[in-house]
Design a protein around this nucleic acid. Structure first.
Length: 224
DNA sequence: AAGTTGGTCAACCGCAGGTGC
DNA sequence: CGCACCTGCGGTTGACCAACT
């Protein structure tokens, strides 16, 4: 005996959502919230849909803060950098892009960004300039082409805030620091142009890890 | 004009993991 | 501890549309 299906497939509507269905779902969630139970939500909202379908529709399309399309160069590079560090963990990648969903990021990567980055990698490999001492294994493969990849760091990255790891210098950066390994984080920061130079620091036994190159971060006011 | 091909994106599927009983 | 239920996730599918032949 297998697991019971999440819904009665014969009695739920499938396929594209109609404007009426969208309105029902939006109205219900805005008025009552999800109640932490997507399975029961469709019947309460008057929808003949599977709970999973409702959840997906809300998260990927109806949420008020959703952005569609219009990816910036900065977002492209951030997606690429994180992807090369952690792979296809779309929910993690999307969590670093305000207003973007995992589905959206995944689609964008598969349809556009992958090709774009492959083309960029190819052109990078055809050039022979190598300007850093960064370990190849821990960096995006196109890290050597800083000029073509250069991202203009934004105020957002430098927004004030205190990370759980005590990297009080940055809001977003601190969040990343608490999520990724120190080496990876440093590599990513260098990639994005936040570090003056990339150099690792040995961490002594027992001692608390200190952001080795926090002083190495460009101040927002004196970014190169 | 009709058929074909390729790109895009919303939606579905099935699995893994978390949680409560 | 084992089971059932639920959510979240990543991979995949399929409908739609535009460009091309």
């Amino acid at each position: 005996m297998g697991r019971a299906p999440c819904c009665d497939k014969a009695n739920v509507k499938r396929g594209p959502w109609s404007p009426d269905e969208d309105m029902l779902l939006r109205n219900y969630v805005e008025k009552h919230g999800t109640g932490g139970n997507w399975i029961a939500l469709p019947s309460k909202a008057g929808l003949k849909r599977c709970g999973k379908s409702c959840r997906l529709r809300w998260l990927n399309y109806l949420r008020p803060d959703i952005k569609h399309g219009g990816y910036t160069e900065e977002e492209d590079n951030l997606i690429c950098t994180i992807y090369k560090n952690i792979g296809s963990r779309w929910s993690v990648i999307a969590s670093h892009l305000p207003g973007r969903t995992d589905n959206d990021v995944k689609n964008y990567w598969n349809t556009k960004l992958k090709k774009k980055m492959m083309a960029r990698d190819q052109s990078a490999s055809s050039t022979t300039t190598t300007t850093t001492t960064t370990p190849e294994s821990s960096l995006p493969s196109d890290h050597t082409t800083q000029t073509s990849l250069k991202v203009e760091p934004s105020e957002e990255y430098y927004s004030t805030g205190t990370s759980s790891a005590g990297h009080e210098n940055n809001g977003m950066i601190g969040n990343y620091w608490s999520e990724y390994g120190d080496g990876e984080m440093e590599a990513m920061l260098f990639e994005l142009g936040f570090l003056r130079s990339y150099e690792t620091q040995e961490v002594g036994d027992g001692g608390p890890w200190l952001p080795p190159t926090l002083s190495n971060l460009w101040e927002f006011s004196d970014l190169p």
